[in-house]
Write a protein that binds this DNA or RNA. Sequence first.
DNA 1: CAACCGTGGAG
DNA 2: TCTCCAAGGTT
Length: 350
Amino acid sequence: MENWNQTTINAFRKDLLAWYDQEGRAALPWRQNTDPYRILVSELMLQQTRVDTVITYFNRFMEALPTVADLAAADEDLVLKLWEGLGYYSRARNLHKAAKYVVNDLQGHWPESYDDLQDLPGVGPYTAAAIASIAFGQVVPAIDGNFFRVFSRLLKIDDDIAQPKTRKVFYQAIEPIVDPERPGDFNQAIMDLGTTYMKTDNPDTLHSPVKKYNAAFRDGVEDQYPVKTKKKKPVRQIYQAQVAYDDQGRLLYEQRPKTGLLANFWTLPLKQVESIEELAGKQLTLKPIVHVFSHRRWEIWLVDLPVKNQQNLPTNMTFLSSKEQEALALPKVQHKLLDQLKEVDDVSKR
DNA sequence: CAACCGTGGAG
DNA sequence: TCTCCAAGGTT
């Protein structure tokens, strides 16, 4: 691992920030000001999610709920509807809880430090550092995937970034490098660098503004960084989705358990099966609907399976009209099921 | 610590 | 089609 002296650190800060001031993504909507609420919303949305995807959601969210007080007073249904399709829905519920915590428990006074910000639900070390530095000027590195990638190359850090304990190594290496005058800009500059000249695939290190500080590039081993062990493949699981209507043409839904995958969301009643031979009812499609999560791959078969006793449904099931359904936030997989069902209906009408 | 938790884009 | 992964946090 490289060890920079103070002269190198000073020069690096200057070169990085000069580039950032010229070519940084200043137009990103959450960079219009440093309101901690805007930073919080954007950072929660950006967790494991691409900037291009977030922009639309962010603008819509801020228009609907412009202040932390608005969010604290909002119904969870609205919050989830604004988050619909973005995934990792615990982020939305945590964001809602965090707003209530700030407004109701702290009388609207934001925690300002790296340590205190981590008391907010959904706010861990990265997000706390981002808010503390950008909104409150604390000198702390916001170590995310960009930081792992950029500094593993610059400093030739060989630790496996997939291991949680590696965060400590990076923190100790980077903390002295953060610009004490402009910590928020320093952090955002590293992120911009990490998505441009120092991105994951096909980085353009030759033209990077900090090329001369890049030890891995200097030694011709840039492709070896960051060191990262591979993830496991998603487990394949087969499901049947029950298609059943009541006498008013409403469709049967089932609410998922309040913890776990897609917690509390409504979907068609889903039942896991070992193989398609186990499907109950008439199979409606030739191919399954495939939906891949981080750790699971669902192959779902629609089956026609009417409910015999509509008056005696389990408590977590209900019939919903299309109008009732449209008011609900539904996970993407359920939208896929509905799209497929609509196609089946269209074909049968011909 | 390792597993869990969504989705869409890129190669 | 398949693999990886993108501004991580919680349990």
